[in-house]
Design a protein around this nucleic acid. Structure first.
Length: 492
DNA sequence: TGAAATGTTGGGGCG
DNA sequence: ACGCCCCAACATTTC
């Protein structure tokens, strides 16, 4: 006997390797549903990711159509909407893949018990991570707080193989009204800040294609080239992963297979790439054991760090007008395409926290709103990592010199020229230090410092000293500290 | 998944 | 030929 089920989609916008969808399809016909629920208990998606969500939902809907299923769109509190649908249809079973942030876990639990009280059968599946949430643990049954031992334990464990698209996908025979997602306010309304986002193709097909291209063309040499923002050398799978258009275990096994094919030649590049999945996993793991990670420094001694609140500095950083080309190029890339190269993320984050002494959570909030790949665990764990307040973090005194970083990782200034057109005509020798260019060189390049391009807002050497002295004021005490709330909303 | 300050070494200019 | 100094190059330490 076949039971028709609802399958609730959230951050798992794919047909393949989808545990909930597969489990439901094994029981009978399926009605897939996406509910746009700006639940106050769960941090809602930033503006940039809403753009991605819109396009990803269209893609998912199309993919379901190919299998003869209609993806239902609804808006409102998830429980209320599900109740209505259940009352209207009499469907008695709901499947979904569990979330893995603490707030999603709690909200899943509430939803689960509320549905059960209504006599609805629920089935929650594990999905979206390589490992079971909260695993592995140390031999003494502690949680890991250092990446390397965590990673060693993780990579040795059995990572499940991905499963395909369910073969026996059949549509439930109910007519359910569906919203038009154009009414959800997912796309920019005023000025269209998402024009540059057209470089992306959201959706499961595009994600699979992107992975294939990466493994056939870019994995070779990845370990080194990944640090070069002037080269297109990274996988750029992060937004696909964030929305669940592809799973880490699909990437894991496809990468191992590609390494296998090359008989070991790509092992070091391949493991470097897989370790990046390891960092994603480690972030989710840390957030699980430290639910305050988004709001509080992981290391207690940072609770009394003398952060500065300087709105004009923050705004200058956000707009990419700090006067340091590598910083400004990164911030403008973020604004224009909703994504920033990993190396540059570290440089701009270090600059905000250290040169400008701004609380890491201000930067985290900006990234959250502007990144298409925003992920609560990765975003907060990595900001804390750069700030020095996180688990297994870079030491606070490791302060990037934005000039040297620019010269080292963008030696010809291609990246700077791409995102800061007003510097495009400046010669290589001063592309990362325009204030050192001769008046004649500036004139030839049509640059007026302080006008067409800003002078540096802080002097690096001075700011570095200031940061180190701020660091030295931290005490070892474990002051419980305040939970942080950012001062500025992003562009939403 | 740094950078700057400080220390050490060794070749070469020079008296 | 020798010692002295300078300083680039590299190494170590410190932040």
């Amino acid at each position: 006997m076949a039971t028709t089920s609802l399958v609730l989609f959230r951050s798992d916008l794919r047909l393949s390797d989808n545990s909930a969808l597969t489990a439901a399809a094994q029981q009978g016909p399926v009605i897939p549903i996406y509910i746009f629920d700006e639940n106050s208990l769960v941090r809602s998606r930033g503006a940039a990711q809403k753009w991605w969500l819109y396009h990803s939902l269209l893609a998912l809907s199309k993919d379901f159509k190919k299998h003869g299923l209609n993806l239902v769109f609804k808006r409102g509190p998830t429980l209320t909407v599900l109740k209505q649908v259940v009352q209207q249809t009499g469907i008695g079973t709901v499947f979904w893949n569990k979330g893995f942030t603490p707030e999603q876990v709690n909200s899943d639990k509430e939803l689960d018990s509320s549905l059960q009280k209504l006599g609805i059968t629920t089935s929650l599946c594990d999905d979206g991570l390589l490992s079971k949430l909260g695993q592995p643990r140390t031999q003494q049954n502690n949680d890991y707080t250092v990446f390397t031992p965590y990673w060693n334990a993780l990579k040795l464990s059995q990572i499940p193989y991905p499963i395909g698209v369910p073969q026996d996908l059949k549509s439930g025979k109910y007519k359910i009204d569906s919203d038009s997602i154009g009414d959800w306010g997912l796309l920019p309304t005023g000025p269209d800040w998402a024009k540059g986002f057209s470089v992306w193709t959201p959706g499961e097909d595009a994600a699979r294609h992107q992975l294939g291209q990466f493994l056939s063309q870019k994995i070779d040499g990845y370990a080194h080239a990944r640090d070069r923002p002037d080269k297109n050398a990274t996988s750029q799978l992060s937004p696909h992963l964030a929305l669940g258009e592809i799973t880490p275990r699909q990437i894991w096994h496809a990468t191992l297979a590609a390494m296998e094919t090359e008989g070991g030649r790509l092992d070091s590049d391949g493991w470097k790439f897989l370790s990046e999945l390891g960092w994603r996993e480690f972030s989710a793991y840390l957030l699980h054991y430290f639910p305050n990670l988004p709001k509080q420094s992981f290391r207690p001694r940072f609770h009394n760090f003398p952060w500065k609140k300087d709105l004009s500095h923050l705004t200058t950083w956000q707009k990419g007008r700090t006067g340091y080309p590598i910083i400004d190029a990164g911030m403008r890339q973020l604004w224009h395409i909703g994504w920033m190269h990993n190396r540059v993320r570290m440089i701009v984050a270090s600059f905000l926290c250290k040169q400008l002494l701004t609380h890491w959570a201000e930067g985290e909030a900006w990234f959250w709103d502007t990144l298409v790949d925003a992920d609560l665990a990765s975003n907060t764990a990595n900001w804390q990592w750069v700030a020095g307040s996180g688990a297994d973090a870079a030491p606070y005194f490791r302060i990037f010199n934005p000039i040297l970083q620019g010269q080292k990782f963008d030696p010809q200034g291609h990246y700077v020229r791409q995102w800061i057109p007003e510097l495009a005509q400046l010669e290589n020798s001063v592309i990362h230090t325009p204030w050192q260019a001769t008046p004649a060189a500036l004139k030839a390049a049509k640059i007026t410092l302080g006008k067409t391009y800003p002078l540096p807002i802080v002097d690096h050497a001075q700011a570095r000293k200031r940061a180190l002295s701020a660091y030295s004021t931290m005490t070892k005490g474990d002051d419980p500290g305040q939970l942080f709330s950012p001062t500025v909303k992003g562009n939403s």
